[in-house]
Structure formats: structure tokens, C-alpha cells
Amino acid sequence: MPYAVKIPIVRKQSWGDYHLFRFQAPEMAAAARPGQFVMIRPGESTAPLLRRPISIHGRDRGALEIFFQVAGEGTALLARRKAGDTFDVLGPLGRGFDLDAPLDGKTACLLGGGRGIAPLYFLALELADRGALVKVLYGGRTADDLPVRDRFEEAGLELACSTDDGSFGFPGLVTGLLETEIPVRRPDFLFVCGPDPMMKAAAGLASRFRIPAQISLESVMGCGFGACWGCVRRIKRAGAEAWRKICEDGPVFPAEDIVWEGWK
């Protein structure tokens, strides 16, 4: 059940283009599941017009946190909001990660690229709560693109980082880090969120090593709750391909269901 609320931002943290907002929304927080998102109006006027989909980053009792990167006009406007400002939030939306499998004692590898780390903090805590052994792999272009890495460590979660420019952690892509990690860790599950090429590469590794993987896709959205049919991706289920809505059928899909090419 999604809720529409206008509420104040109670805390804001910023690191360059990256921002974390915290707000009190007890009903929304109670309903939220890892991998779900909210739709936020960037301003009050008709420009920009549409809400922006933003991942739920964390939950702490009755509070929710969102983490986002400025990617255009809407998120730039959103980033100018200060603590104490009221904003208009709709959520939680989407299906989130499927956590129905037994997790106790299982090893889960979480792979986040750039702002794709957003839903994985909430997920990592939930997995750890359910007894899974969690390893988070967090990649960015530079050390500045890993702003929330301390949060994982403060929460006692095991974390390894990579940077494309080698300025911090493993030098190279986070999928390269995953490749070194798989033979050592033998993960039972992979959870992935990041840029499309990274997710495609991760899906390839998951398939090669036969690890069940769930991937959280991103898209421009018109509504966020299944009404506009604007955020579709090519998804294969039971052998049949179709355009499926990221907002409603996803944003999380089993890696093997995502059709990466051949339709453009």
C-alpha cells in the first residue's frame, strides 16, 4: 500500500553530487521493503513536471532514508532542498528484492555501482538480520563516488571498494572485483544495482558461475505505480518476451529474465 505524504526533511547529508535525505514517515517506513523506491516531486511548479524515482536507502524505526545522485534538472532541484524543507513523497513503490529463499548461513554478494549502491544498504541490513553472510562490493569512477562506504562499515558489514581510476580500493570495474571474489566466497546469491553495462556484465558472471542473481533496474518513470506504461524493459518469462513495467513488475528482476540486447 503506497502512501502520499508531504513531510519535512529532517536530515540532509551531501557529498558533491550525492545526497542523502532522511524523513519521518512511520506508515511508509513500516511498509517499505529493500529494493522499493519512492516518487518525489522535485519542485512545486510544473517545471519540472514529473516526480523522480529514488531508491529507498535505509530505514530506521519510523524514518526512511533516500540516497541519490544529481542526474538532471529534477534531481538538481531536489538536491537544493534543505533540512526542514517539506517535500512531496509517494511510496513505497515497486516489488523490491525477492527474499523468500532461506538466507540463514548463506553468503550474499551485493554489487553496487555509483548511485546504484542506494538500495543495497537497506538490503544488506535486512539480509544480515536474517542470518546471511553479507559482502558488499561498492564501485565508483573515483574515490569521490563512494560517499556512503563508511555507513556499511559502521553497521558492521563487510565491504570492498573499487574505483575505475584506482584512487581507492581495487583498481578497475566492480565486476572485476566480483570476478576475484567469486572463487573465494562462493556466494549463494548476487544482488546488483548500477549502470546498465555493469549490470549486464554482472548478469554474465552470474550465469557463468550459476549464481542466482537479482538485478534492480533504473528508468525514467511517468507515474511509478503502473499507470503510464512508460518505464518498460524487455523481459523474458516462461520463454516469452514482453515489455514489462520496471515500476510495477520490478524494479528488481531475476538476472536471467532481462533481455539485454537485440530489441533496440
Partner: peptide, 12 residues
């Protein structure tokens, strides 16, 4: 096929 939406000045 997507992309199916583009936001424009006060428009969709």
C-alpha cells in the same frame, strides 16, 4: 520500444 517518455518544458 523504449525510451517511451521524455519530459519537456512543463510537458510530457
Amino acid at each position: 520500444p523504449p525510451p517511451r517518455l521524455v519530459e519537456t518544458a512543463s510537458g510530457l
